[in-house]
Design a protein around this nucleic acid. Structure first.
Lengths: 63, 63
DNA sequence: AAATAATGTAATATATATAATACATTAAGT
DNA sequence: ACTTAATGTATTATATATATTACATTATTT
């Protein structure tokens, strides 16, 4: 489950913990999602996208 | 978890069962997702989008 | 109208996303 | 170098996505 969350988060200068708090998950969850080792739910993907001012496609779509 | 799967599926003239088979879930799962009562995983959202020749944003993004 | 296909829906079971806690490591600030 | 912030990672627990089975209802076809 590759994605571009890490870069988008860096653009906003958020720490994993800050983003986690914004989307109501733990820092660990953000960390694992960024590593691509997680298969997050749509609701969480939508929250993350909005928190980072991106769309789903910008973060999760490929090709 | 509102979405536009049902319309996109109709455009392709797929039954719920046909779509389910393409993305390796049960018909019930597709039905519940279409009704918006489900919070599917990203992997499944990606599979559905590809099966229907849409992007994530086209199916799941709002505003 | 009868038969069949498609969809709705409910109950229980299983797989897995996420939480909670904890400790280790790396990066940044002083 | 030392201190602290940020991130990596592992373990166990919990919540929930999905499967399975089954039956009901609605739409379609003949």
């Amino acid at each position: 489950m590759k994605n571009r969350i890490k870069v988008a988060r860096a653009e906003k200068s958020y720490t994993q913990e800050q983003l986690a708090k914004k989307v109501n998950v733990t820092r660990q969850t953000i960390g694992l999602i960024e590593k691509g080792e997680y298969n997050p739910t749509l609701r969480l993907c939508l929250s993350i996208a909005k928190a980072l001012d991106k769309t789903l496609d910008q973060l999760f779509w490929e090709e």
